[in-house]
Design a protein around this nucleic acid. Structure first.
Lengths: 349, 349
DNA sequence: AAGAGTCAATGAATCGGTTCATCAAATGCG
DNA sequence: CGCATTTGATGAACCGATTCATTGACTCTT
């Protein structure tokens, strides 16, 4: 005898809807909705009946439909230039925890530090009715980016950027960190101090350079332009920059590797060239890491609380999304400190 | 003369809708939708008129509304136990790039390696009508988790987990990596080999232990149970485990720090105790890093291509989401290799 | 007991797209 | 030319929740 062949369930999986729950419980759809949203004026008796029906049918609310009706999505987008940077992960982790606690889900995208992608993402976020955005910018002065930001229609918070004062910003005090590091090197007698720094269009590098220059002029010293290398963004960049610096006729006696996550490239170059950090040359890292701490000798480094940055960013964005009336953009700077280790030594006289 | 006070625009920002575009272009709403979705049968003349109207009004589709109608969201969720792990960031970065290319947006959440959170996230993802999920699991055998997975209603891909063969899995060949590392140590004459490993309920640690045991029995050697430390999940755990191991009456002559991202803690402990890696004790790291490469001496380490894992995971999930009829779950294992460096030396006889 | 006021529950309208049955016009064919 | 077929456009219905004007029942007041 033939068996009927049961066809694969195709297309939209049939889900349980409020309508179904309402029918099961013998109430109106509006009542089910009120139960769902904890409306204060629902009799316990009905509430229980509805909840029983929901459990029985395995009902789950459709967030998409809620979003459409409410005009908000309970999504927060985070776009950073490259989340391959280990320490940024800490920022995201903390921000996500705070946001999830508040009922939001995190959307993630990477901008590759390109203005066109930043603009594209902003519009993609808007199309998704995202409730808030936290992001880095490749160039705060970029005309089209600024235009896209002002057309954003949802709160935007800048991560480690300080150029647009109408927006909320969470930064680290890189200027002070760089000033401390440079002052430390100057105090040890160093004068030929090389600096490896990232993209000077963006806040962190720009303010690190400021701090560097500030310390130099406080010591009555003019930094040598040939010892400044900008656009150092990756380990490979740092490797090349270090090699070329050490090949100079008058090589630096100290290296300030200020860009994030580039210490490895620099140390690799020094090792290849047979130069010992600390002994042959003093080295300061712009951001601390296991690598800096556990290197031999351990590397003097600047540090700050990235977890706190993540928490603050999420909290400030939540306030904006709640619609709190806050005047203008707020800037919050997390302090930086210098951890002095064995890689920075007095210049031999 | 009094000025009228213009009230702040409150509530829902009035957006341009297809209806408005249709009116502006003098066509039906259905036609605008067909232009939006590149329907083949639209005369170029009309298409142009509609596109002009969209540009003129600054129209942007509402992805939420599209999602609701279509029953899919073009969202892919990624939930991993802790994205503070630097190398995982690489996985996510590559996966996100592939997914974005295909028109999907990445949702991110961290599970803290807790089964209840994993279950909660699965249902949150379902409520958001997420199209696909990639995730780690704290315990593949956990009853409730398996139940939640089978009720998932969207494709789920496991990241570095291999226990549920009905699902797609992307793993690294940790077993082979551990086997290579252990064989290497045994070949150098080591017999008291300590192993620091994570949660044995999860695939990576379990299969590392298998590889370790396999190499041991191939050498006719029985590993000493007191030298095995599991549940080493953080740098602090590794620190404590190392200290306690080295304080044994018969301390190990080699340390296999197999858990991810725990090498730092181990090296910190050794430094504190005045033991030199390589010289006093041989050390192998379960995953490579700048720290391993640039340490003095450089640390022998297992490595694999996490970027490729990310790409594969995204690609396989995309195939599932396209609805390709694929039999059962597919398992893809990325190969691991051992990089031998100075931290592993022959046992002095 | 009539009128005013509360309180719960109802269900039609709404959010902003997409789909598809339907229709009109254009084309093909003998 | 007449009939069948194809093509392009139309707009009502729909996706699944929430909202709010409305209704009916009940409680106070006087």
């Amino acid at each position: 005898m033939n068996r009927f062949i049961i066809p694969m369930m195709m297309g939209r999986p049939q889900t349980v809807k409020v309508r179904d729950v309402a029918r099961e419980a013998g109430v109106a759809v509006g009542t089910v909705s009120r139960v769902l949203n904890d409306h204060p004026r629902v009799t316990p008796e009905l509430r229980e009946r509805v909840e029983k029906a929901m459990a029985h049918l395995g009902y789950e609310v459709d967030v998409t439909a809620q979003s459409m009706r409410a005009g908000r999505s309970r999504l927060v987008a985070c776009a950073i230039r490259d989340f391959d940077i280990p320490r940024f992960a800490l920022f995201i982790k903390e921000a996500e925890a705070v946001l999830r606690e508040a009922g939001y889900t995190l959307l993630l995208a990477s901008t590759t530090n390109r203005a066109d992608i930043e603009i594209g993402l902003l519009s993609a976020f808007r199309r998704r009715r995202v409730d808030g955005v936290m992001m880095t910018l490749s160039d705060e002065q970029h005309r089209d980016v600024r235009e896209a930001l002002s057309a954003a229609s949802m709160p935007v918070l800048l991560i480690d950027r300080d150029g647009i004062t109408t927006l909320d910003r969470v930064t680290a005090d890189h200027r002070e960190g760089a000033r401390l590091a440079t002052t430390h090197l100057l105090g040890l007698g160093h004068r030929r101090i090389a600096m490896l720094v990232g993209d000077l269009k963006a806040f962190p590098s720009r303010s690190r350079l400021e701090g560097f220059r500030e310390a130099c002029s406080a010591a009555g010293m003019v930094p040598h332009p040939r010892l400044l290398r900008d656009n150092v963004l990756s380990g490979e960049d740092a490797y090349r920059a270090t090699v070329s610096l050490m090949a100079l006729a008058e090589p630096p006696t100290a290296l300030f590797v200020a860009a994030m996550d580039t210490l490895g490239g620099c140390l690799r170059a020094l090792r290849t060239m047979g130069i010992a950090a600390g002994d042959g040359i003093s080295v300061v890292a712009g951001s601390d890491s296991d690598l800096a701490e556990l290197h031999a000798p351990p590397i003097t480094a600047i540090t700050w609380d990235l977890a706190a940055m993540g928490r603050h960013a999420a909290t400030m964005l939540l306030e904006r999304m709640r619609g709190d009336e806050i005047e203008g953009g707020r800037g919050l700077a997390v302090p930086t400190q210098l951890i002095i280790r064995g890689s920075t030594r007095p210049l031999p006289s």
